[in-house]
Amino acid sequence: MDSPTSSPSADNFHSVYVDAVPPTLPAQKAEVGLKKVLHLINGEHYSGAERVQDLLGLRLPEFGYHADFACVKPGKFATSRRATECQVFELAMRHRFDLWRSRDVVGLVQEHGYQIIHAHTPRTALLAMLAARSCDAQFVYHVHSPTSRDSTRRLTNWMNQQVESWAMFQAARLITVSNSLSRHLAQLHVPMTKVRVVHNGVPSLSDVPQRDAPNGSWTIGCVALFRPRKGIEVLLHALANLRGQGHDVRLRAVGPFETPEYQREIETLVAKLNLQHAIDWVGFTQDVNRELFQMDLFVLPSLFGEGLPMVVLEAMAAGVPVIASDVEGACEAIQPGFDGLLAIPADVDDLTMKISSVVSGEVDWLSLRQTALLRQRESFSDRSMAGGTAAVYDELLG
């Protein structure tokens, strides 16, 4: 989605920074007295990391900060976000090393008075690092997942890891979304004195419907930006196993595919497993909670590369018991046997067994549901996430 926009000088960037807020949802001015933060994000999708950014935009004013956003890969974030009081600037990079854009970040900081530049991806971290050298703003970097294991593309992972490592050593503070990610940074010899853990969080819901355990037919749900690392193939094989064992289960898959090529691969597998009539492909939606309320059991079969999956927390908030792969982050949200279950990554038989244990009643569905609701409210709220992020800002700004 990168567009070949030329990089202007600081005195004429108004012609390039198109406010991407929908005309029906105009951005409001920051409340007087709030300190200002510019979040540099990709913005191409609206999935886990983008939900974190959106919720920070909504909640940070409670703690004295106003957030705006600059998207280097403009896309769904601008039109899908709920934080409509935040400005969104298009700052399209032509490629991941389009470093001239750092001058434009400086221009935004100088005009709008941002005191912190908060980056969320390797490419935005590079821009933030360079921009912070030319202005008075502090540089904060948010680590959402282990970059070295972020995808199946080894060269891309390596390049992103090199860029990210360079930027992390320059950042004033690093925010990780889980303790496991902090340990990952320690292995990269990042100074731990600048690392702060702020767990992801989601809003608690006041209108969670009262439910009994399903009787007979079960809807298994998955919400993701479907790409190889999310392991949907493992779930499809497990679904075929369960149906072969006589369980009345079907899959509700919510979210877009990363590429048409990958979508075709999955469609081929679905046909091979004879699951065409056992799956509802919902596609992208802004109302994730509505979809979660239609699920009896949520499964996230990630192979690797998670930080602290927002969708797991959203499922817990909606009262949907979770079975997730035992990868970074997910194991911090789920207490096996109490509020969910953990499955061995990429192990079809183990995932089949874990789902079967709930569907068959061996594991009490209602107990998982009630404990998950309580744990999300106590430990993973959007307010606690914003408060933790604001505390990092406070350290830098005094």
Rank of each mutant, 00 (worst) to 15 (best):
S3Y: 10
P4R: 10
S6C: 05
S7I: 12
S15N: 15
V21K: 06
T24P: 04
K29H: 07
H39V: 05
L40G: 05
S47R: 06
A49Q: 13
E50V: 09
Q53F: 06
Q53K: 02
L60S: 01
E62C: 06
A67G: 04
A70F: 03
F89L: 10
H95D: 14
R101C: 07
M129A: 11
A132D: 04
V140W: 06
V143W: 00
S145V: 04
S145N: 15
R149D: 14
V163G: 00
M168K: 12
A171W: 01
I175V: 15
N179M: 07
N179S: 13
M192P: 05
M192L: 08
K194S: 14
H199F: 14
A213I: 13
P214F: 05
R227E: 14
K230F: 01
E233Y: 05
L236D: 00
N241E: 12
G244S: 08
G246N: 06
L251N: 01
E258I: 08
L273C: 12
N274M: 07
H277P: 05
D280C: 07
D287K: 12
E291H: 14
E291Y: 04
L308H: 03
P309D: 11
A324K: 01
E332D: 12
P336G: 13
I344W: 05
A346E: 12
L351Q: 00
V359P: 00
V359N: 01
G361L: 11
S367L: 03
L373M: 12
F380N: 06
S381A: 08
D382S: 15
S384D: 15
T389I: 07
A391P: 04
